[in-house]
Every structure is written in C-alpha cells, then in structure tokens.
Write a protein that binds this DNA or RNA. Structure first.
Lengths: 123, 123, 123, 123
DNA sequence: GTGGTCTAGACCACG
DNA sequence: GTGGTCTAGACCACC
C-alpha cells in the first residue's frame, strides 16, 4: 500500500505522513475509524516504530488524526478536503516548476507542454 | 545578489549552486567569462570558502562551469546537457500533472497558477 | 584491503572511490548490501571522515551507491550507466590505439602488453 | 600548432612539454635548431611566460633540449627516438586500461575490441 | 593571486 | 548508531 522512496530527500516519517494523508483525503481511511497501530505499521513497512510515531505526531499536529489514550489513533472528521489536496498539489507543482526555472525553460514552453499533457491524459 | 535561506531544507552549497546556475542560464554570467573567485564570493556571502568550493564543484559536475588551475572558474559553453535536464523535467512535470488530473483540477486553473508561479519566481 | 598512494597525483578521495568502485564491479561488495560506515572506514584507513564522505558522494553521483538516512550507504543495483561508461571507454581506447598505429606498433605487441597490464593491475 | 586542454588534469606546463617532445621526436623541431623563445611561445599561446619556462625546464631535465646562455634553448641530439615514443604510448595505454579495469570490463572484451579497432584502422 | 585537498571538530536530522 | 553539512585553518600546485 505504502511505498517508501529512500532516494527521496524528504525524511521517511514525512513520506509516510503524506501517504496516509492522501488515504484519509480519499476516504480509504474513513473518519473516526482507527488508524493502523504504530507497531503493526512499523512491522508492515519493516522500519523503526519511532519513525511511525513521528509520522503520526505530524498528522496529529496537522489535525488529520487524533489519539485516544490506551486505544490508538483515529481519523479526524475533516473540514476542507478538496482544498487540502489542491493546496498540496500546487505546492508540489511549484517545487517542480522551480526546477524548470532553474534550467531556464521559458514559461511559454511549460504552458504549451502542460496543455498537451492534459489533453493526452484526459482524452 | 544571492540571498541564502538558512531555513531552507536544501544545503547552502546547493542553494548557491542553483542561484548561480540561473544566472548562467540567463546569460548574466556570460559564457567563458570568469566566475567570482571562491574566496571573494565566500567573503561577500560571509560563509566558509569550502562551502563555495562545494557549490562550484557541483556546478562543474553538472557541466555549467570549468576550472582553470591558478586562474579561476569559468562559465562553460552551453551544450546538450541542458536538453537532458529538460527531458527529465518534463517527465517529472507529467507525473505531477497526472495527480492534478486525478483530483479533477481543470487545465485552466493549472495554467493560470503556472503562470503566476513563474512570474513570482523569476521576478 | 585499500591501500592509499600519497604520491599519486589523484586525490585520496578519488583513489578510495575508484577502489570501492572496482570492488562493487567485482561483486565483492554485493548489490543492496551495506557499505562500510563513513566513520569506520575513516578509522580503518586512518584518515579524516570527511575524505571518506567525499569518496562516497562521488560514488553516489556516479550511481554506484545510494544512502539511506540514519542507516548507511548501500550498493546500487547495476544499471545502464555502466554501458555509458563503457562506450566512453572504448571511444578513448580507439583514439589511444590510433596513436599506436601511427607510430607503427604491431597489433601483437599491443595485445601482449594489454594482457600484461590487465594481469598486473587486477591481481 | 599546440592546443591546450584546460580540462586536462595535468598542469599546462606538462602538456606543453609533452607536445614539444612529440614535435622533437617527429623531427618537426630539428636537432640543434633553436626552440621558440620563451616569450614568443608565451605570447602565441597567450599564457604566462613562467609556464613556458617550467615546460622548458622539464624538457631540459629529460634531455630533450639544452640551453645556451644569452642565446636560447636548442634541440638536443637524440638517442632513442622510437623507444621514447613507444614508452609514452604504453604509459598512456596503461592509464587508459586502468579505467576499463575500474568499470569492470573483462580482458577478453578489451582484447577483442583492440583487435577490431586495429583491423578497421589499418585496412 | 587562483582552485583543490585535507584535517579537526562541531552540529544536525534521521532511525 | 548513521550520513550530511558547515566552519576554521592549513597546505599544495599552478599561473
């Protein structure tokens, strides 16, 4: 389900948090249901439980999940589903475009290419 | 000219390399002219010369500059390596856009946002 | 295992990188196994860890190893980049041999010498 | 006549010395004739006269030229023309082959390729 | 003067 | 524990 990219510059816990966030946004992890336990997820991904703990802490700070002592972590009711995801998308897009700017690709070329990709993929 | 962001996740030497790369791509640093010396740039940015050295090493490995011993570093004539980078960029962009398509962001919005990002970042 | 030659014109970090590269190519360091840690190798060779770090950075940029944060460096699965290097090698070899042809060195002598060099260097 | 490669790892003075050595070996610079003056050659190559001076010093130490005070440098009578050149060739070949060894090209492949190149080029 | 390499020692993020 | 980054200071070759 969750694939880790060790080449990625972002820390593992952040990758995991982001992936879980997507699952929550897509209602694959439903509101008020229990998240997989820290230990179990750590086993599944064969990584250190500390790392999962940090991912959950991050999700909690962002309001995606809430802990119940002695029971586990649960998915928060959500507020702003679409906007969250869009925001994330545009944040990523911006990072991506920055690279294009760095190597000197003109705006016009990016726009043309974007249009072409969209048409190919949505046809 | 070059502003460092110590909050940025990327290391300083990478930030510097990227900024210089942009200046080269914009022909502000012209082909075959001399780059600022390692020591001078270090003084100007008030950081350690080793850090500049690393930035220059990175630029050299990417083919943007070439050193002449005892003289300094110079801007490389532009070559195909730019095209390779472009190809990679558009491949990544496509993957990125695919996500936008998946969550239903309309082309018009992406185009508008792209334009805005470009203008912010190149100003 | 690794012997450094301080008389060699090449920097130490490059010598180390080259030696490790050979070990990887010979599968003595196997794919996806862990490289010796930066600090340990530094101790073993009694040189500064930074120098090892640089050697590893070089190997990473060439695609021979990949780092996992907090865990160590690992041997990359072999890919096409080897072929690119090979192609370059044979191009250079051809230019080299052309000189031998020009001054009239017979094929047999070149073959014999090549064999001898190989045996010396790989023993 | 002499082309410098600033990308080359070898110092400029060594490149110049080597090129001049070849010219001497090929009798383009004839025995007992005068070498170009330090200043003139420096002008021609638009480099620092010190660098030429070092190249000449190197050639003198190898016995290729001899200086006459107040007059200039002259080509030495030679001894061992063919062997010098062959030795140089095999030295270069060895450096070249070392690279092949580094990236793991088997001896057999090098031998086969060498043979092929020779046949192509001498036919 | 230039770039390049190396050491020593420190700090950080990550697992 | 791991790798990665940065500083400070030194030395070298080269021009």
């Amino acid at each position: 389900m969750i694939v880790l990219d060790y080449q990625d510059r972002r820390p593992i816990y952040e990758q995991i948090a982001e992936k879980l966030q997507v699952l929550i946004n897509k209602d694959i992890l439903e509101v008020n249901t229990q998240m997989p336990s820290v230990r179990k997820l750590a086993m599944d991904l064969s990584i250190n439980p500390n790392t999962i703990q940090r991912a959950y802490a991050l999700l909690e700070s962002k309001g995606y999940i809430y802990p119940i002592k002695g029971r586990g972590n649960f998915v928060s009711p959500k507020k702003d589903f679409i906007n969250e995801e869009k925001e994330q998308f545009f944040k990523n897009l911006k990072a991506q475009l920055q690279q294009g700017i760095d190597i000197g690709i003109p705006l016009s070329e990016v726009l043309a290419r974007t249009e072409r990709i969209y048409k190919e993929e949505t046809s």
